[in-house]
């Protein structure tokens, strides 16, 4: 009787313990990655390739996402603002909402979908086809050759992606503002620029760096710990994306609390 009552609790406990264990492993993995930063060699070529893959090639995805969201945001704020005759706040709120929250979060989630998955699948496949073992036998440390360049590239590229996404998102709001909401072009721009502070933008870029770190670390961690065979790689990829997305949203809340709570 007591057994049947407590067994769900026991199951829950086991789940939580399992999760804590993984959190610990990921933390150690991230720490290990960072220690390789100060231990040569550093593979510049790999780093350059990853900058292109993670940063440059993510631009269209991030740009399109923020463009449409900026437009939708302008419409919503206009409709909401109209209820208390505050339509004129559209430019400033679009800008602040974009650079502080939506820019970094949307860029983070899109990069998680695009990059965490591809990193996990690539490294997972390398693992199951013994390429990681082969790297080791060729005197090349997998953490240095595979993980560090990816994590570093993502961490450095994301703030720039966020900045570009911010600009495109604000542009989306601007287009909607002047074409559908009868804003004056010059006034809209002036409003945007006047209200934005440097910290609004830079806090979003710092968030971006954190999200980039999360995305690449999750991709590498789940790839390196991939199970055997195609199924193992598939499951590693899925878990990497889910874990990266959730961690991004949680970290976003924490950073917002840290940066902006009174």
């Amino acid at each position: 009787m007591i057994n049947t009552l407590t067994s769900p609790l026991a199951a829950l406990g086991r789940q939580i313990l399992g999760m804590l264990a993984i959190v610990g492993k990921i933390a150690m993995f991230a720490f290990d990655t960072l220690t390789h930063l100060i231990r040569p060699p550093f593979y510049w070529r790999e780093f350059g390739i990853q900058l292109i893959h993670i940063g440059w090639l993510s631009l269209p995805v991030v740009g399109l996402t923020t463009l449409f969201t900026g437009g939708a945001l302008a419409l919503q704020i206009y409709a909401g603002g109209a209820r208390f005759n505050a339509e004129s706040v559209v430019p400033s709120i679009v800008a602040i909402g974009m650079v502080r929250e939506l820019g970094p979060v949307l860029a983070g989630l899109m990069v998680a979908a695009r990059v965490a998955s591809s990193i996990a699948a690539e490294i997972g496949t390398m693992k199951v086809t013994e390429q990681i073992d082969a790297l080791v036998t060729l005197s090349t440390h997998p953490m240095k050759y595979l993980t560090l360049p990816r994590v570093l590239a993502a961490t450095l590229a994301m703030p720039i992606l966020v900045a570009v996404g911010d600009a495109i998102g604000i542009m989306g709001g601007y287009f909607v503002g002047i074409s559908r909401l009868d804003f004056n072009s010059a006034a809209y721009l002036k409003n945007t620029v006047d209200f934005l502070e440097l910290w609004d933008v830079s806090s979003g870029m710092i968030k971006g760096a954190a999200f980039g770190f999360i995305v690449a670390t999750m991709g590498c961690f789940y790839g390196m710990n991939s199970g055997r065979g195609a199924q193992g790689v598939g499951s590693a990829t899925k878990t990497a994306v889910v874990a990266a997305s959730i961690l991004i949203l949680a970290t976003n809340y924490l950073l917002t609390e840290l940066f902006f709570s009174a």
Binding site: E130, Q131, A134, L135, T137
Partner: peptide
Amino acid sequence: MLFQGGALF
């Protein structure tokens, strides 16, 4: 080392 499956990059 030559791996059984080749393990080429």
